[in-house]
Design a protein around this nucleic acid. Structure first.
Lengths: 204, 204
DNA sequence: CTAGATTTTTACAGTCGCTCTATTTATAGT
DNA sequence: ACTATAAATAGAGCGACTGTAAAAATCTAG
């Protein structure tokens, strides 16, 4: 983990600039109505360069520069507390992130959920979260990550997160995302699922 | 609901023929490696005609000629039994369909779940089921279909179905889809969710 | 059965996302 | 400054998909 050099930082800046330009265009004239050529022009780069930074047009919406850090943080959670507690903490931590960059997150979420093409890929993105979740639950409960129960519960969780996001976007980003998420996992009795999964999950 | 005329039946036959030709090619040489031009040639139609029948290449995998009937049957379920019972029946009925056309369903499911591009759209398809489900639960429990709890529970159910399908495909179509689905909804405590949703759902 | 209306199929041109290759330009370390 | 390396770009090309207009098949009336 060495400090990123000047070169790397410049790349990150360019990437962010492309994303900003793209989101501005998407907001003004719509996602489908915006061409990659236009984005490149707006960001003052060539179309080729666009594809150097983003493998596809969709990725410019999906990409979140903080994601890797979040994922890394999740993967290295403490093992000396009940799983349910860890998850509560995790939800709280997510809340902070939402507030930090509210407007950009809202715009991206809105696009991801309202443009059909993107919505499909939003689910792919959720699957990454699901897989991470799956390995966490597996590690903590002793069940194999491949167990159907573990998979289904992980999917239920990201499904709840998905619905909460939908609700949040529907509210114009005005609602409290964390509250919504809590209500969602409450409605499916998420903590009950963990309990049923095995004593290791709920006690320690 | 008039009987479909000769013309309409011919169209259905053509559509089925295109799908068969396409699936054969996909199986032999892969989805991405197969071009619409090739499908058209194999089905002995022009590329234009292909797009007359299927709005996109993906739809040729997703399309199921029996879907409309299934959806219609679901939407008109009886209202004089507990919701949980209706759902159990529904699951049983699905089992019959699976056995009836096992091989074709397996091929399509395999493609849908293993080709990334298709997998994303498989989720879109699941959302249709979710919405139908949502309206059924709402109608039976008296909750508005827009209620977060109703949405989340519906999503949890299709999520479970999704995981069960994954497992089924992983088993090479050898497993019992219905058993898997039952295990999946058991793991998330699906019937408990319905109970918590309101007494109307579980008693009558 | 034929003429005209309608529907279906097709050819064709064009757009857009995306890939690949080769060339030029910028940067890093010596 | 010199060279290895990486980044940006131009350009050709592919495949999915759209739109338009013409050709072929099918249906309906007289």
């Amino acid at each position: 983990m060495t400090v990123p050099g000047l070169r790397e930082r410049k790349k990150q800046k360019t990437k962010a600039a492309i994303q900003r330009a793209a989101l501005r265009l998407f907001k003004r004239q719509g996602y489908e109505e915006t061409t990659v050529e236009q984005i490149a022009a707006a960001a003052d780069i060539s179309e080729s360069t666009f594809f150097n930074y983003f493998p596809s047009k969709e990725d410019v919406v999906i990409y979140d520069e903080y994601d890797p850090q979040i994922f890394a943080a999740l993967a290295t959670g403490k093992h000396d507390e009940p799983l349910a507690k860890s998850i509560e903490k995790l939800i709280g931590a997510l809340g902070g992130l939402f507030e930090a960059d509210h407007d950009a997150i809202y715009e991206r979420a809105k696009l991801s959920l309202e443009v059909p093409e993107l919505r499909a890929h939003a689910w792919e993105e959720l699957e990454k979260a699901r897989d991470l979740f799956r390995s966490i639950i597996a590690a903590r409960t002793g069940h194999p990550a491949s167990a159907l129960a573990v998979r289904v519960i992980s999917t239920a969780f990201v499904g709840a997160a998905f619905e909460a996001s939908l609700e949040w976007v529907r509210s114009g980003g005005k609602g409290n995302m964390i509250d919504l998420l809590k209500k969602a996992i409450d409605a499916i009795g998420f903590y009950g699922m963990l309990d049923r999964l095995g004593s290791k999950a709920s006690s320690r």
